[in-house]
């Protein structure tokens, strides 16, 4: 049993039931999943040599961020939330991710047509 914050004791809530299995989900759980996806995506972007692998890393990073937006906006996880703003931001991120993927894929295909390789290490034409 956990002691709730003082403001809630007045509302008649004296203890938080943490006994159920598994313990109830909070915003922190969502943040951890989002952090894991974000870090996996960032490492993916840094280590992959295939340009499409780098793109997939970007998708993972955007999803980790989206998860945080939705968790902060969710009314099922805590009392005072971002409300609708979280979900709307997540929607804008999804749309922009689609646009980003289209452009990046076009660039990758163009690069492949001109250089017959998709290895980002060989994309050094602008090297001084």
């Amino acid at each position: 049993m956990l002691r709730p914050p003082d403001g809630l004791v007045a509302d008649g809530i004296t203890a938080i039931d943490m006994d159920s299995f598994p313990p109830p989900i909070t915003v922190s759980h969502y943040l951890v999943v989002g952090a894991v996806l974000f870090v996996l995506g960032a490492v993916c972007m840094a280590t992959k040599r295939n340009a499409l692998g780098v793109l997939m890393g970007i998708e993972l990073v955007l999803n980790g961020a989206n998860l945080n937006f939705v968790a902060f906006g969710s009314r099922f996880l805590r009392q005072d939330t971002l409300g609708l703003d979280g979900e709307l931001m997540a929607l804008f991120v999804i749309v922009l991710a689609a646009a980003e993927a289209a452009v990046a894929l076009a660039i990758a295909l163009n690069f492949y047509n001109n250089h017959t390789t998709i290895d980002v290490d060989h994309a050094d034409d602008l090297k001084g």
Binding site: P5, I16, V27
Partner: peptide, 9 residues
Amino acid sequence: SWRLPRLDR
């Protein structure tokens, strides 16, 4: 407040 679940679930 991120660590506590919603109380009146």
